[in-house]
Amino acid sequence: MSGTSADAIDAVMTRFKGDGAIETIASHSKAMPEGLKAPIFALQSGASRDIYDVCRLDAELAQHYAASVDSLIAKTSVARTDIAAIGNHGQTLLHRPDDNPAFTLQIGDNHRLAELTGITVVGDFRRRDIAAGGQAAPLIPAFHKTLVAPKESAAFLNIGGIANISCIKQGEASGFDTGPGNTLMDAWIRRHKGLDFDRSGAWARAGSLDEKLLKAMLADPYFHRAAPKSTGQDHFNLAWLSALLTDSPAPEDVQRTLLELTAVTASTALRQSGSQSVFTFGGGRHNDFLMARIQDLLGGLSVSPTSKLGVDPDFMEATAFAWLAKQCLDGKPGNDPAVTGARGERVLGVVFPA
Score class of each variant (00 low, 15 high):
residue 246 T to L: 14
residue 131 A to P: 07
residue 303 V to Q: 09
residue 260 E to I: 01
residue 127 R to A: 11
residue 226 A to Y: 08
residue 295 Q to C: 12
residue 203 W to C: 10
residue 126 R to A: 09
residue 151 K to F: 13
residue 330 D to G: 04
residue 242 S to R: 15
residue 83 I to T: 05
residue 175 G to A: 14
residue 20 G to W: 04
residue 100 N to Q: 14
residue 15 R to L: 07
residue 163 A to L: 09
residue 116 L to V: 02
residue 97 P to N: 00
residue 259 L to H: 10
residue 233 Q to L: 11
residue 23 E to G: 06
residue 215 K to L: 14
residue 68 S to M: 01
residue 53 D to R: 11
residue 289 F to C: 13
residue 239 A to Y: 08
residue 197 F to H: 13
residue 151 K to P: 08
residue 319 T to N: 03
residue 267 S to D: 09
residue 92 T to R: 04
residue 34 E to T: 05
residue 232 G to P: 02
residue 245 L to D: 10
residue 239 A to Q: 14
residue 314 D to W: 00
residue 35 G to V: 06
residue 209 L to A: 08
residue 69 V to H: 08
residue 17 K to G: 10
residue 50 D to N: 15
residue 125 F to C: 02
residue 86 I to Q: 07
residue 9 I to P: 03
residue 240 W to T: 07
residue 30 K to T: 12
residue 28 H to M: 06
residue 188 W to Q: 11
residue 273 S to Q: 13
residue 323 W to G: 09
residue 251 P to T: 13
residue 276 Q to I: 02
residue 333 P to T: 13
residue 147 L to A: 10
residue 146 T to D: 07
residue 230 S to D: 06
residue 100 N to D: 14
residue 21 A to V: 01
residue 273 S to L: 12
residue 278 V to P: 00
residue 195 L to R: 10
residue 337 P to H: 08
residue 191 R to M: 14
residue 246 T to E: 14
residue 273 S to W: 11
residue 132 A to W: 12
residue 58 D to P: 00
residue 25 I to V: 15
residue 120 T to L: 07
residue 226 A to L: 15
residue 206 A to N: 11
residue 231 T to V: 10
residue 40 I to Y: 11
residue 262 T to N: 05
residue 238 L to C: 07
residue 153 S to F: 03
residue 123 G to E: 09
residue 224 H to Y: 12
residue 140 I to T: 15
residue 174 S to M: 13
residue 152 E to L: 01
residue 257 T to F: 00
residue 250 A to S: 09
residue 249 P to F: 03
residue 207 G to L: 12
residue 198 D to E: 00
residue 94 L to G: 01
residue 89 H to E: 03
residue 61 L to T: 10
residue 56 R to G: 05
residue 251 P to W: 15
residue 221 P to H: 07
residue 226 A to G: 15
residue 8 A to N: 11
residue 219 A to T: 01
residue 338 A to L: 11
residue 3 G to Y: 04
residue 317 E to N: 04
residue 301 L to T: 11
residue 325 A to C: 01
residue 68 S to N: 03
residue 127 R to H: 13
residue 151 K to S: 15
residue 44 Q to A: 07
residue 149 A to P: 06
residue 252 E to N: 13
residue 97 P to M: 01
residue 216 A to I: 00
residue 104 T to M: 12
residue 182 N to E: 00
residue 251 P to S: 14
residue 300 G to R: 10
residue 291 M to A: 04
residue 58 D to H: 10
residue 158 N to M: 05
residue 320 A to D: 06
residue 267 S to E: 10
residue 242 S to Y: 13
residue 283 G to P: 00
residue 59 A to K: 13
residue 319 T to Q: 07
residue 21 A to L: 08
residue 232 G to K: 06
residue 245 L to I: 14
residue 162 I to F: 12
residue 149 A to H: 08
residue 277 S to N: 05
residue 63 Q to P: 00
residue 279 F to N: 02
residue 192 H to E: 01
residue 216 A to T: 09
residue 256 R to T: 03
residue 274 G to W: 12
residue 339 V to H: 05
residue 75 K to Y: 03
residue 261 L to D: 05
residue 231 T to G: 07
residue 277 S to M: 06
residue 273 S to R: 13
residue 94 L to K: 15
residue 186 D to L: 02
residue 17 K to S: 14
residue 37 K to I: 13
residue 143 F to A: 04
residue 221 P to K: 05
residue 237 N to M: 07
residue 90 G to S: 09
residue 109 D to Y: 09
residue 76 T to W: 02
residue 64 H to A: 11
residue 188 W to I: 12
residue 101 P to Y: 05
residue 41 F to D: 10
residue 260 E to L: 00
residue 141 P to W: 02
residue 84 A to C: 13
